[in-house]
Amino acid sequence: MIDSPRADRAATVTIAVLAVAFALFFVLPLAGLIVRAIEEESTWSLLKEPQVRQALGLSLWTSTVTVALTVVFGTPVAYILARGRFPGRAFLDALIDLPIVLPPTVAGVALLTAFGRRGIIGEPIEAWTGYAFSFTTTAVVMAQLLVAAPFYVRAAKSGFESMDPQVERVAYTLGASRVRTFFRITVPQAWPALLAGFVLCWARSMGELGATLIFAGNLEGKTQTMPLAIISAFEGSSLGLAGAIALSLILLVVAFLVLVVFRMAGRWARWT
């Protein structure tokens, strides 16, 4: 059967229209944000506000800690899930996926029921040590970790799965230790996947709002990260709507810079 060229052209036009409409949907909100930020005269002075700086600093700091913890604890889990065959593997796999599909507010409530002052572990901990997690910067990291780490584990697991285990075995037969093999063979091979998971995890923790509000509260300099500062500004804090726009713009620029850096890191990894 020979397709008519007209049908082909119609398909091309349809695809183009759909693609442009979809792309516009992504471009317009960004454009709106940038235009409003430029229109608002106070945008630039707001960038110097201590509240804005504190929020940005806290966001960068907590998300960095979150990503670091995720890599340290998440990489072995991802590796075990990809390579290991043990009872409960499917359960663990599903468990780690769960926060990806759960609304972050549920994660926040769940954290309270576990680590809150009346939580199953939070209450005894406070009774023994006098320490309570809620309203601390630690709580911010915990909230981010719960919602963001699964994105890294997921990506890392599929990265490990997609490489040929034979390569590792060859390394062992050549006398390389397991640790050496992991760092010299496995990680470089899975690098693109790890990097993608890294970026997703970081982005998700920078954007975390719901679980943080519920579990960590909202206090400047302590638990008020960028998204919390934005919602507080939107809800009428002294920064005002102009503040919400300025903060959003900062977050946009930071996110863009990070993406660029990671893109470059990805390229660099391919060259070496």
Binding site: L112, R118, L213, G217, L219, E220
Partner: peptide
């Protein structure tokens, strides 16, 4: 002693009800 600036009055109430 302030630990959190809640978004609305019910947020304050919830934090107290929960014992946080």
């Amino acid at each position: 002693n302030l630990k959190s600036n809640e978004a609305n009055v019910r947020g304050v109430l919830a934090k107290v009800q929960l014992g946080e």
